[in-house]
Design a protein around this nucleic acid. Structure first.
Length: 825
RNA sequence: GCCGAGGUGGCGGAAUGGUAGACGCAGGGGACUUAAAAUCCCUCGAUCGCAAGGUCAUGCGGGUUCGAAUCCCGCCCUCGGCACCA
């Protein structure tokens, strides 16, 4: 745009992008045929987290994630690999359902509309998705297999139904997740949330806890994601100790502790209010109080109950237990700070050495006994606060003087001998509750028959289709709206032919997404969930890029399902993603993007103003991809100017010179190819873009005339970031095939340029002479300057001499091709 | 409280033991233009100096080292995750 009007040959991003997107679509450039999927020579499965198709449309956060992943895939394709890059829609779930209720449109109507809008937007960003292999988790052809997976777990004994406490909003009449409870109130209506006991389906993920933990050692994932999973699984080593209840022999109350060495300081026992032993051991005198407390605890919502800073409460049961180490009788209490779902639901309280027990003992005036002294001061004075560190045992009979590590082992061994203890490992991880008392999900494929009991739906009867239900709002009954559709849930038992009733709960959305990557290559297969041959060829996923918000849920559940499917003989690998990289978080002008702040970036307007190429490039340039960055409208002009200058430099092609590149430019070119290649491989996209900009500046410096061999490789380097302009320039450079197609020399290679270390080698370096670490002179020399030579030249420099005046040289440090540091005093 | 990441010009960010501030934005000056936009060229951490050059500077305080944004110790702050897990 040099003359205020647009010449035919000006860079018109929108027109170019429309043209190439249409062409990719028409020619199926990025789509595998079924046979091509089977014959691919160098398969590379490039996966990104499929979006939930909200009504708002594609968010800039989605686009940031997808662009970074697409650049990786396009780069792999330019290297000549057969890259499979699918996308789909995670469209079931509470989010969609709540939104549908809000706008008063049935989800069965709303979701297809949203998917159509998302598809349009996803095509607009120029990612190389295979639109012939997409999934929609709400399609019966998909959730048929989600139900099939449920049945495989059921048959393997990994799915079981049991009672569990859930959050219940009495006004919305629905179960809430913990995330939807804000300080005891419903996030949507503000009502006080209650606790309800419901019978629900669980997957026994805890059975896989150790394996899920062990494999973290060898899978190639972002460190922070691995750490998050480790913490979530939460392995702790310790012991189970058993305390006989006085007068109720042979009843033993088991407790889990990581500090069996402190058992001599266990001055009372605390059970969770729900603990089964409570009813039988409570004394008559205390029974009324105990019952009242249990009722109060049961009515409290789960989030408030688990708040650590809540004041501790509890009641004495009237019973005593025998401390097997000391032989003393200690009181048994119940308190809601002890959680039924962790360990055994009971603890031995050691107030001297546990902060919570200390607080509780203070509250109810229970004995606090020191049994550990800090190493430095073998101190037996009373405790002002709980001492939780290591040290030496005191007041512990024959174990006195022993350190914490030996104490844990020795005390456990002694009590084990007497039958009161076993070494034990505990995990924080809970079984995965997959029941949802909602409408918008795949029905759980189970039937209940009066005669046969719980009966799985035969695989041949799948899918159990979700019926269209006009009024799908949840109600206060605590069961799914499907329980109101008698015509649907009444059925016959496949075993006895008698009357049966369907399970009316649907499954968790996370089950839909726990296996979607297995479905993509087989997306069009109606006969099985995943074709064995295709699965073997393409899986596990080679590269998975996504946000860290899924570090523990989706990424853990999909690992679990993969392990189960392997154990059941359906697949041959147990980790779904060979490499996982998290991307960072985008913020807007220093602040987190949120609807309430009104600073959410909607990509559409930017795409229309600047084009997808500029937008993609800017997103990758604004900060390190794996750490995130700050989106500023002002910043887009940078990459836009770069693409404009690239356009002007290549065109018109007839004016490009032929022949050999300038020596200096060629050196910079090979350095740039090397840097961009290494940076993309490591997802350092921001510095890759900077290197390309630097190279273009070098090529254009001083308005010199450019030869084709200098600029053509840059078009390829830019292609993963700005695929449309790259295709256009490539075509204008005279190539007939797509820049992403295999190179025209017939080899397996793609068009990505190779770098030559020889050609990248510098012929002059700037050598620094410093005095006491401060640079005093710089000189341009040929690499390989000797120490002697450097000293000769360096000491002659006037500036250096000035710095040396009146000082004595103590020594000189020579670092080859970098610097000479003269140390003086 | 615990785990993880981070704190560098006016701004986004480079540099992970060896020239601090690559690349880009914004700002300043200039060319072209009737003018504006666009484009191009120069300049651009602070401070002292006519200049050569000096001094200061990577959250704060110490340390290691010939040399520290980078490594170690102790603090402060920001962001993300987990949180009564025994």
């Amino acid at each position: 745009m040099t003359n205020g009007r647009r010449d035919a040959d000006d860079y018109d991003a929108i027109a170019i992008e429309n043209r190439w997107q249409t062409r990719w679509d028409d020619e199926g450039t990025n789509r595998f045929t079924e046979s091509a999927l089977r014959t691919a020579k160098r398969p590379f499965y490039n996966l990104m987290m499929f979006p939930y198709p909200s009504a708002e449309g594609l968010h800039v956060g989605n686009m940031y994630a997808f662009t970074g992943a697409d650049i990786y895939g396009r780069w792999k394709r330019l290297l000549g690999e057969d890259v499979f890059e699918p996308i789909g829609f995670d469209a079931f779930g509470i989010h969609s359902e709540n939104f549908a209720m809000k706008v008063g449109v049935h989800p069965m109507e709303l979701i297809p509309r949203n998917i159509a809008n998302f598809t349009r937007q996803l095509k607009r960003i120029g990612a190389m998705y295979d639109w012939d292999h997409t999934v929609d988790t709400t399609a019966p052809e998909y959730y048929k297999w989600t139900q099939w997976i449920f049945l495989q777990l059921y048959k393997a004994g990994l799915a079981e139904k049991k009672e569990a406490a859930v959050n219940w909003c009495p006004s919305c009449m629905t179960v809430l997740s913990n995330e939807q409870v804000i300080s005891g109130e419903c996030e949507r209506c503000g009502s006080k949330v209650e606790q309800r006991l419901l019978s629900q389906w669980f997957f026994r993920i805890t059975k896989y806890a150790q394996r899920l933990l062990d494999n973290l050692e060898w899978i190639d994932w972002s460190d922070s994601t691995i750490k998050a999973q480790e913490n979530w699984i939460g392995r702790s080593e310790g012991a189970e100790l058993r305390f006989p209840v006085v007068g109720h022999e042979p009843l033993l109350v088991p407790v889990f502790t990581t500090r069996p060495d402190t058992v001599f300081g266990a001055t009372f026992l605390v059970l969770a209010p729900e603990h089964v032993a409570v009813a039988s051991i409570a004394s008559d005198a205390q029974r009324a109080e105990v019952e009242a407390y249990r009722e109060r605890a049961a009515s409290l919502d789960l989030v408030t109950r688990k708040k650590a800073d809540k004041e501790k409460t509890g009641v004495f049961t009237g019973a005593y237990a025998c401390n097997p180490a000391t032989g003393e009788n200690i009181p048994v209490w119940i308190a809601d700070y002890v959680l039924m779902e962790y360990g055994t639901g009971a603890i031995m309280a050691v107030p001297g050495h546990d902060e919570r027990d200390f607080e509780f003992a203070k509250q109810y005036d229970l004995e606090i006994r020191r049994v550990v002294a800090g190493d430095a001061d073998v101190d037996v004075s009373p405790l002002e606060e709980a001492y939780t560190g290591p040290g030496r045992l005191v007041n512990s009979q024959k174990f006195d003087g022993m350190n914490t590590v030996d104490g844990i082992r020795s005390v456990t061994a002694l009590l084990a001998q007497q039958g009161f203890a076993d070494a034990r490992v505990n995990y924080r991880l809970h079984d995965w509750c997959i029941s949802r008392q909602r409408y918008w999900g795949p029905p759980i494929p189970i039937l209940y028959c009066d005669r046969c009991g719980t009966v799985p739906v035969p695989e041949t009867d799948l899918p159990v289709e979700l019926p269209f239900v006009e009024s799908y709002k949840p109600d206060e009954s605590g069961v799914s709206p499907l329980a109101r559709v008698e015509s649907w849930y009444r059925t016959t038992c496949p075993q006895c032919g008698g009357e049966a009733k369907r399970e009316t709960d649907v499954s968790d959305t996370f089950l839909d997404s726990a296996w979607y990557f297995l479905r993509y290559p087989s997306a069009n297969n109606g006969d099985m969930a995943f074709d064995p041959e295709l699965t073997k060829k393409w899986l596990p996923v080679n590269m998975y890029i996504g946000g860290e918000e899924h570090a523990v849920l989706h990424l853990l559940y999909s690992r679990f399902i993969t392990m189960v499917l392997k154990d059941l003989g359906h697949i041959e690998f147990e980790e779904p993603y060979t490499t996982f990289r998290k991307h960072g978080l985008l913020i807007k002008e220093g602040a987190k993007m949120s609807k309430s702040r009104g600073n959410v970036v909607i990509p559409d307007a930017y795409l229309e103003k600047w084009g997808a190429d500029t937008f993609r490039m800017y997103l990758m340039f604004l900060g390190p991809y794996q750490e995130g960055g700050d989106f500023r409208d002002q910043g887009l002009i940078g990459p836009y100017g770069f693409l404009n200058r690239l356009w002007e430099t290549v065109l018109p092609v007839e004016e490009l010179g032929g022949g050999a590149p300038d020596a200096g430019v060629e050196r910079k070119l090979h350095q740039t190819i090397r840097k961009v290649t290494e940076d993309i491989a490591a997802l350092r996209y921001n510095t890759a873009v900077a290197a390309m900009m630097e190279y273009l500046n070098t090529v254009r410096a001083g308005n010199r005339s450019v030869v084709r061999s200098e600029i053509e490789p840059l078009v390829v380097l830019v292609a993963p970031f700005a695929p449309h302009i790259a295709e256009e320039l490539w075509e204008r450079l005279g190539y007939t095939k797509s820049i992403f197609a295999p190179a025209e020399d017939g080899s397996d290679a793609g068009n990505w340029p190779a770098f030559d270390d020889e050609k990248a080698r510098v012929n002059t370096i700037e050598f620094v002479i410093s005095v006491n670490g401060k640079p005093r002179a710089r000189m341009n020399v040929a690499p390989g300057i000797t120490e002697t030579h450097a000293k000769d030249v360096g000491l002659e420099d006037v500036n250096v001499q000035r710095a040396l005046e009146g000082k004595t040289i103590r020594k000189m440090i020579f670092i080859a091709d970098k610097l000479l540091n003269i140390v003086v005093s």
